[in-house]
Computed example of a mutant assay.
Amino acid sequence: MQYRQEYAEPETQLIAAQQPSEPTKKARTKRPRWQKVALITFVVLALLAGGGMIAGGLYFRSINSGIERVDAFDGVPEAERPQVGESAKGAMNIMILGSDSRDPESDSGSRTDTIILAHLPKDRSSAQLISIPRDTWVNVPKSSNGRGGKDAKINASFAWGGVPLMVQTVEKFTGVRVDHVTMVDFAGFKEIVDALGGIEIDVEKGFTSNYALSSNRTFNKGRQTMDGATALDYARERHAFADGDFARIRHQQQVIKAILDKAASGGTLANPAKLNSFVKATADAVAVDKSLNLLDLASEMRDLRSGNLTFLTSPTKGTGMIGTESVVLADKERAARVFGAVRNDNVPEILSAAK
C-alpha cells in the first residue's frame, strides 16, 4: 500500500485453530469460538467495505495489533469540525478511501479513486455506505502545508494534504463529522476473491474491458462466476460506459456485496483454512486510523449481515465542464438532505432522500 502510515508492532502471533469443546446445555446456542471470530471478521469487512474492506488477523488478539495505522486527523482544526447533536450521539461515521495501485491509469500514490462515507446508526442494526464520486466539484479547505483553499475535484484534497485534508474536505462538503478512517487498496480484490473461491456477479450490460490485468476481457450480460482477476477488471472498468465513474461505483458495490455474501456463506465459515486465507488477503489491503478499535466495533456489529447494508451515491446533477476540467456536479439541495439525515442519525430519511 502506498499511503502515509505508521505500522503497529504485532503483540502476538496468529495461533492455530482449535476445535470447540463439547458445549454445556447452557451454552448450546452459542457459536463455536472460531466461528464467532469468523463472523466478527466478516462484520468488520462489511462495515468498512465498498468499496472498501478491512480485516485483522484470524483471532482477537492480533486484529488490532497486526494492521497498518495512519494518522488521519493530524492538523485537522477541532474548532472547524462539525459537532454531533444529541440525536446522533452513539452513531458512527467512517470515511473509506480507496485506490488501485495496479490500475495502469491510476496515480494511486497521490490520488484516491473511491470515497465512501459509511454511517453506522447508534443501534448498529444496519449500515449505509454513501459513495462520493471522486470528480465531485467542492471547496477544498487550506491544509496545514498551505495547499488547497480553493474549489477543485474532491480527490485533489488527498494529493494536496493527505488523509487529514481529505477529512476536512469531506466534513466541509457533507457537514458530517468523520469519526474514523480506513484506507483500502482495491488491487487486493484479486487475492480476496480467489481466497473465497470466486464470487457470483450479475453483469448488467455486456462490455469489453480495456484495462484488463492481462489482455482485453469481454463480459457477457447475465449472472456469472468471477475469479479474482475477472472481478478486479469488472470493478475497475469505466471507459466502456457512457456514465463512466458512476458505472464503476455500481460495479464496485456489486463486487463488495458479492464478497460479503460469499464470506458469510456456510462454505467459508465452516472451512477454517479457506477463512484464514480470506482474512490474510483482506489484511494485506487495508490501513486504519490510530484510534479505531476493531474488536470493540466488531463486537457491537456482530449481528450485521450484508442484507442490512445499503449502498448509495451522493446525489449529483451529472457531469459538466469547469474551465478545462470534466467534473461531477453535486446536487447540493438533495445532498444536503441526505447528509442532514446522516447528521441526525435518521436512517429512513437517509434512504428516502437518496432516491
Rank of each mutant, 00 (worst) to 15 (best):
G267Y: 10
V347A: 12
A16D: 07
V184L: 11
D289N: 13
N155C: 03
D202M: 05
V170L: 09
T136R: 01
N216P: 09
K36H: 10
N216E: 13
V193A: 03
N271W: 03
F241M: 11
G161H: 06
S352E: 09
A285H: 13
K142E: 15
G206S: 15
K332D: 08
I154A: 13
P164G: 06
T29R: 11
H239S: 11
V178N: 04
R31I: 07
S110D: 13
L129N: 02
I154D: 08
R334H: 06
Y59S: 10
L297K: 10
D331P: 13
V288M: 06
P272W: 06
V288H: 05
A17S: 08
R69M: 02
S106A: 15
I96P: 10
S126M: 11
L260A: 09
D243G: 00
A270T: 04
M92W: 13
A152I: 01
L275K: 01
L329F: 07
K25C: 08
L260V: 03
M301V: 01
V342K: 09
V76M: 05
K89W: 07
S99Y: 14
K355M: 14
D227S: 03
L129A: 06
R147H: 05
L309G: 01
E78D: 12
I201Q: 00
A285V: 14
I115E: 04
E200A: 10
T182Q: 09
G266A: 14
T24Q: 01
G318T: 02
E349M: 03
G318E: 04
P77I: 08
A195N: 07
K150F: 09
S306L: 02
M95P: 00
G197F: 09
E9D: 14
S157Y: 12
P10W: 06
R238L: 00
F73V: 10
E204V: 09
A195G: 08
A336C: 03
S265A: 13
P20W: 05
T316A: 05
K122N: 06
G51W: 00
I94M: 06
T136I: 10
S215H: 09
K190A: 15
P32F: 10
I132K: 01
S326R: 07
K153P: 05
I63S: 06
A242M: 01
P104K: 05
A17T: 11
G267N: 15
H180S: 10
E80D: 15
T24A: 01
F158W: 08
G340D: 10
V193K: 08
S214K: 15
A285G: 14
V286E: 06
F173S: 00
Y211S: 15
G161L: 12
T208G: 04
E22T: 13
G161V: 12
G148I: 11
S214Y: 15
Y7P: 00
R28N: 02
E204K: 14
V37F: 13
